[in-house]
Design a protein around this nucleic acid. Sequence first.
DNA 1: CGTGTTCCACATAAGTGGAACACGGTGCGTTATT
Length: 504
Amino acid sequence: MKLEEILKERFGYSNFRSGQKEVISSLLAGKNTLAMLPTGTGKSLCYQLPGYMLEGQVLIVSPLLSLMQDQVDQLKVNGEKSVIAINSFLSFDEKLTAMKQLSRFKFIFISPEMMLTEQVLARLKSLKIALFVIDEAHCISQWGHDFRPDYLKLGYVRKQLQNPLTIALTATATSEVRGDIIRTLSIQESEQIIYSVNRPNITMAVEHFHHYREKRDRLIQLVTKLEGPGIIYFSSKKMAEQMAADLRLQGIGNVMPYHGGLEQETRMLIQQQFLHGQLDLICATSAFGMGINKENIRYVIHFHMPMQFESYVQEIGRAGRDGQPSIAFMLYTSGDETLQHQLIEGELPDEPQITLLENWLQEHKTNPQNLAGLEEELSLICGFNEIQLRLTFDYLKNYSLGKNISSVCDEFKLYIKKRLESKRRKIEEMVRWISSEKCRRIQLLEYFEEMPKIQNSDCCDHCGFSITTFERTNFPLHKQRDNEEQSWKERLAEILLRKREEER
DNA sequence: CGTGTTCCACATAAGTGGAACACGGTGCGTTATT
C-alpha cells in the first residue's frame, strides 16, 4: 500500500504536509532520523504512521506529563486503544498492571526519568521496540547537561534496547544542538531532515527603555492596542502573577498567570481556557508553551528576555500558526540580563560548595559511587538546592569510577565552569541581538546557519513595519458576557484567582 | 538590578519614610515491584 493510502485510511488526510513524507520514508528505509520541522507540521504523524507499518512497539520519550497526556488523548480520539503513558499519574496498582501487560500496547509514552528506573528499563528491554522516538529532542541539549541529567542518558537507554530505529523530533535546534542530539543518542549515521526556522508572518521588534516604569507603561499600552490573543513572557513567577492581576484590575481582559509554581490542575485549566478562547492573555514564565497548539495567537511580548536565542525563537514561534500577520515585541531595559545571569548561577553548584563536599567525602572516606541516603546531610552541609544536589550526585556517580575524590571534584569544578561559560555566552548572544542595528531576521537565520531570505514588509524594527497591521479593529476590548454564559471552568478560574489574591 | 517585604524611628494616632534584606525558571520522580 502506498503511504498516501495509509494516510487516508488511518488518519483521514489526503495529503502530507511538507516534511512529513520525507521523514516517514527515511524511517521506513531503516535510517535513524533527526527531523527539524516547523511547529504545527504535525510531528506526531511522523512516528505514528511508520509505527503502524513496523512490527513491534513505538516508545516515545516526552519531556512533559501534560504533553504525554495530550498525545495519548489524541491517539485515543483517533481510535487507537493500545496506547499508554507510563508516569507518575499512574497509581502504584495501575503501574503494576501496566508493566505486566506492557507488550499489549502499540504506543508507549514515557519520561526519561521513568525510563531510567531499573525495573522499568528491565521491562522495556524485553519488548520489541520498532521505533524509539525522542519528542522535543532539543531538550537533550537544553536540559540534559544540568536541569534534567537523565536526558543525557537516552543514549545508554537506546543501547540497552539494542539500538532500535530512532527518530529525534524538534522544531528549533542550531547545528550545535543537533550535534548534541546525535552524539547523545549515538545515531551518527542518521538522516537529517532540516526545515527553515523562518516564520515570515511574525514581525520582530525590540524596544529599549531606561526604566522599569517606562517599560511597564509600554507593556500596558501594547496590550491595550494589540489584537489578541497574546502571551507575555516574564522571567519571574511573581511578576507574571502581579502583572496578570494588574491587567485584570485595569479591565484589560481575560488574563491569567501561568508558571511552574501553580498546581498542576490550575495549569491545565488555564492552558485549556487559553486554547479555547476563554482567556485572551497569558502572563507566563518559560513554563508556558511546549505543546501549545493554538492557531491564532497574534502577539508574543517579552517583558524579560529569555536565557538563549533558541528559547526566544521557540517562544515567538507560538504566534501566528495560522499564517496570519503576528508580532513579537521584546521590551528591554539595560541590565535586564543580570536576572538571567543570577538564575544560571543558582542552578549550578559553585566552587566553595564543591570544596565543602570534597572535604566531607575525604573526612568520611566515602565512596562517591555510593552516596545514596546522604542527600539530606550533604544538602545541609554544602547548601545544595534540589537541582544542584541532583546534578552533583549524578556527576559523581557517573564519572568517579576508579578516580580519587579530589580529582573527580576538580573535574566537576571544571565542568561547572564550562557550563556557566556556555550559558553566559548564550545570554550575551541574546543581548547582542537585542542591541544590534542589523535586520533581526537575517541575524536569526544566521544563528541557525540558514541562508538569509528577503522579506518585503513587516520584517522587523530595523526593516520597517507598521504597527497598525497588528492593532485591534474591534472595540470595546471585551464584550461583557452574561454570567450564565460563563463555563464552569471560567468560574472556577476566577475563584482560584481570587483565592490566590487573598492569600497574598 | 529591581521589586517587594519587613521593620523601625518618629511620635503620641495612625500612618509615613526609608533602611535592610530577600529573592528571582525550566520538571521529572517521590512506598512496597512486574
